[in-house]
C-alpha cells in the first residue's frame, strides 16, 4: 500500500507545542535529545575503556565511578522518541528500509555525508549545550535569550553551507 502523506506543518506544530507544554508542565523542563546521546556515548566508552570515563571530567560527570550513564530521564525520553517514531511510521506505512538522498549522489556518498554531518551535529550540540530540541524548541518557548540567538545561528550556519553542498540534495 502507498505510504500516507505527511500532515500539515502548522497542525504538526500545534501538536508539537502541546507536547512541549506538557513536558514543561510535568517535568519542569522541555524536550531534549542530545543529552541522552552523550550518555549513550559515555556508556559505550564505559564498556571498552572504563578508566577513560573516570579520567575525562566531562564524561565522569555522567558515568564516573558508580554512576550509570544511562540511568537518567533524558535516556527514557530518547527511547520514547524512538518508540513514537516507530509507531507513527508503522501506522502510516512509512516503515521501509531506504536511504533518503538527493537524486544525483550515490548511496555510498550519501551515507558518508550522513556520518560526517552527524559528527558535526553531535559536536556542535554539546558545544551549544543542547540541540534543536533542548535548546531551540524548549529554550525558545520559555524565551531564553541564548536559545533564540542559538536558533538563528543554526539557520544561518545551514543557509551558509547549503550552497556548497547543493549537489547532495538537488
Amino acid at each position: 500500500m502507498e505510504k500516507k502523506a505527511y500532515i500539515n506543518p502548522y497542525v504538526a506544530g500545534v501538536f508539537l507545542g502541546f507536547v512541549l507544554f506538557g513536558a514543561f508542565a510535568l517535568t519542569h523542563s522541555g524536550l531534549g535529545a542530545s543529552g541522552a546521546i552523550s550518555r549513550l556515548q559515555v556508556a559505550a566508552t564505559d564498556v571498552v575503556a572504563q578508566p577513560h570515563v573516570d579520567r575525562v571530567g566531562y564524561f565522569a560527570a555522567m558515568g564516573g565511578g558508580d554512576r550509570h550513564p544511562l540511568d537518567h530521564s533524558s535516556v527514557l525520553m530518547l527511547l520514547g522518541t524512538f518508540a513514537g517514531g516507530l509507531a507513527s511510521a508503522y501506522r502510516n506505512r512509512r516503515l521501509k528500509v531506504e536511504i533518503c538522498k538527493g537524486p544525483k549522489i550515490s548511496n555510498k556518498k550519501r551515507l558518508i555525508y550522513a556520518v560526517l554531518g552527524g559528527i558535526l551535529m553531535g559536536y556542535g550540540a554539546r558545544f551549544a549545550r543542547g540541540c534543536t530540541s533542548g535548546q531551540a524548541l524548549s529554550g525558545g518557548a520559555v524565551l531564553s535569550a541564548g536559545s533564540w540567538v542559538f536558533m538563528f545561528s543554526v539557520f544561518i550556519g545551514g543557509y551558509l553551507m547549503a550552497y556548497f553542498v547543493r549537489r547532495l540534495w538537488n
Binding site: L31, A33, S34, I37, T81, C100, Y113, A114, V115, L116, G117, G118, I119, L120, M121, G122, Y123, G124, A125, R126, F127, A128, R129, C131, T132, S133, Q135, G146, S147, V149, F150, M151, F152, S153, V154, F155, I156, G157, G158, Y159, L160, M161, A162, V165, L168, W169
Partner: peptide, 20 residues
C-alpha cells in the same frame, strides 16, 4: 551558543538531520 549553532547548521545540511 553561536559557535555551536553554526557548527550544527553545517552538520544539519551536510547530514540532513538534527539529533532528535
Amino acid at each position: 551558543g553561536i559557535i555551536g549553532g553554526l557548527i550544527m547548521g553545517c552538520g544539519f545540511i551536510i547530514g540532513g538531520y538534527c539529533p532528535g
